[in-house]
Design a protein around this nucleic acid. Sequence first.
DNA 1: TATGAATGAGAGTTCATTCAT
DNA 2: GATGAATGAACTCTCATTCAT
Lengths: 206, 206, 206, 206
Amino acid sequence: MSPRPSIDHIRRPQILAAAAEVIVERGVAGTRIADVAERCGVSPPALLYWFDSKEQLLAEALTVDDDRFYEELEARVDGAAAPGERMVALIETATESADDFALWMELWTWALRDADLRAARERFDARWRAAIEAIVIDGVATGEFGAADPAQAALAIAALIDGLSAQAALGDPEVTNPRLTETVLASAERLLGAELPAGAGGRASP
Amino acid sequence: MSPRPSIDHIRRPQILAAAAEVIVERGVAGTRIADVAERCGVSPPALLYWFDSKEQLLAEALTVDDDRFYEELEARVDGAAAPGERMVALIETATESADDFALWMELWTWALRDADLRAARERFDARWRAAIEAIVIDGVATGEFGAADPAQAALAIAALIDGLSAQAALGDPEVTNPRLTETVLASAERLLGAELPAGAGGRASP
Amino acid sequence: MSPRPSIDHIRRPQILAAAAEVIVERGVAGTRIADVAERCGVSPPALLYWFDSKEQLLAEALTVDDDRFYEELEARVDGAAAPGERMVALIETATESADDFALWMELWTWALRDADLRAARERFDARWRAAIEAIVIDGVATGEFGAADPAQAALAIAALIDGLSAQAALGDPEVTNPRLTETVLASAERLLGAELPAGAGGRASP
Amino acid sequence: MSPRPSIDHIRRPQILAAAAEVIVERGVAGTRIADVAERCGVSPPALLYWFDSKEQLLAEALTVDDDRFYEELEARVDGAAAPGERMVALIETATESADDFALWMELWTWALRDADLRAARERFDARWRAAIEAIVIDGVATGEFGAADPAQAALAIAALIDGLSAQAALGDPEVTNPRLTETVLASAERLLGAELPAGAGGRASP
DNA sequence: TATGAATGAGAGTTCATTCAT
DNA sequence: GATGAATGAACTCTCATTCAT
């Protein structure tokens, strides 16, 4: 019917990507529609043609990338056969891009007062913990890991990564990126009662 | 000299406390001077009589309570003689009030774009990790703990608490307060290579 | 390109004219954005759509009319062939609208503390003196005037007009408009060592 | 009756002097009560103990020095016996302190919209012109000056000084202080049909 | 689809002024 | 006489949003 193909699938992602960039730079609170519009090279009202309101746009921008992250993660992790190797791959993937964590922190803070964002975050975190737990269960099954409670170990590892990533994102001089990865790997070994293989990135050897 | 006694030792803390309350309720971004003023029962300009600007007031409100927290913490922890007991006391203190964590999350998010807040957060975190590390060192010295690297263990425990507290503050159904404390304690045992005594709060028994 | 034709060539002059009117009525210090907006029949933010700030708007309003004044002046003066006639035309043009002088006085006072306005005023005054001086030089060349120093005579005539116009604008009963013109003409004759022809407005005869 | 001598005669002049200073620096519009208070080393409410309102204080500050100026002027001028010498003394006195003229310009601008200030200014100007006119009349009587209309000559000389002083106060590079004095003296000679003696300050000789 | 123009609803901040002390 | 504290009344400016084009 419509001879002109819709550009929905082009414009919306473009706007969301621009919004995510602006949020990282200025924070959700400091992001104005005009900033995002300028980055897209369009006028502010154009954004409101594609999104009902600023709030809706930012909420979507805050969550749109996460699914992609998990897909990439799973692709990388599944390549490794043994649970130990998969765990190392997962940790390295999660810790090597601590800068993106700023967006995650924004989501947290906003989720404190927005039920939809809260639900979205919870969904992502459940998926994340499930991915970890699956590896732990496998490792326990093969005897590679000695953890008694896979769910608790997964929770702990996930929280550890979050806590350290936040500090890295905040530029804490004690938590550089290598130190972050190293600390998570060493802690995971203790939490899992396992010795993990050296990762792709290499690890400080004794 | 002054025909009227100064009340700044009363008003300023009062305003800061009100500001902290409002921040927890509405977030830093959603906090208006008028909200804080109303909670104090004064007019908005009265706040600007005591603080140079809204920004300065909120920044101070975001950090003013932390020192008090550490003082209380140290008081409680020092009461326990053995490192294991002190560690348990510390963990319980840190995890039982996960609600206050919202303020800490606001501080994080604001600190992403404010150097002063970033420095303040770093200072607090350094103090916090040092408190943990001191216990670890003691525990290692007495042989109670088996941790090889006290600094790394302290960093891991601190991050674990942060990561879990964030989820608890966000109302994650998987991370209730008891589960939070329990997970940190169990993980600390593994990270420290130690068995920790049951805390004052009691712990889920098998 | 633009789905709606730009109207900045209409709105900006309209706003500037309204601002000049309000300044004459209330002074720069007493002029509020809301006053100007009301006179334009728009809302206050509309002015900030066209001008970056109140300050910028008022500064422009204070200077925008001057170029037009000089163009009109030159048009009128050039119509007169002989130097004496041109001088009379210039003096009459400059003195017959002493009411507008209030805007010029506002510009002076504001220029005391604003380098841009100071520079603008200086530019206008230089142009004004140059216009006078050109006539004097002509008059001296033709022998119609006897002035020794054209630059000094031009400066004196310009200052005389300013000083008297200020008093007229302030409603000094000794300096009515006719008396103002008459005084400048009589003084100019002495300053230029010339007898000036009767102007269009006529002059008080004995 | 009152054992404590009033300090009216100390405080009020002190405040007025401080106000005049601040006005010269920041302009009437930019002068806040707090500025004046700070310069006096007292608190803002103290000023309102001595003056009913800011407006009244500034109005008084704007006019309080003028009487003193005329008294000083008359003292200096009366010392010179011959009309020509008195005229030179008057002109030199009026033109050598062009910086103070900023206060006079502020008074003008404020007087545009304040009847009291307008009346005050008019009174000062009448006195000023009368002082000039008296000399002119004397000079005409002695035959030293050739002016036909003393009132008009006085008006012209006064206006000339005003116009040039304004430009000097505005920092016009063409109107330096020496050039100002020189131009007024040279113009006065022509306006008065007289040759004026060299002044105390010296004058450019041919 | 998209824009120029405009607006309404605030928000922070300023400041003369008040008043108990 | 003078001050600390506080306030009411403005005022500028911001920004998401609307709407005719």
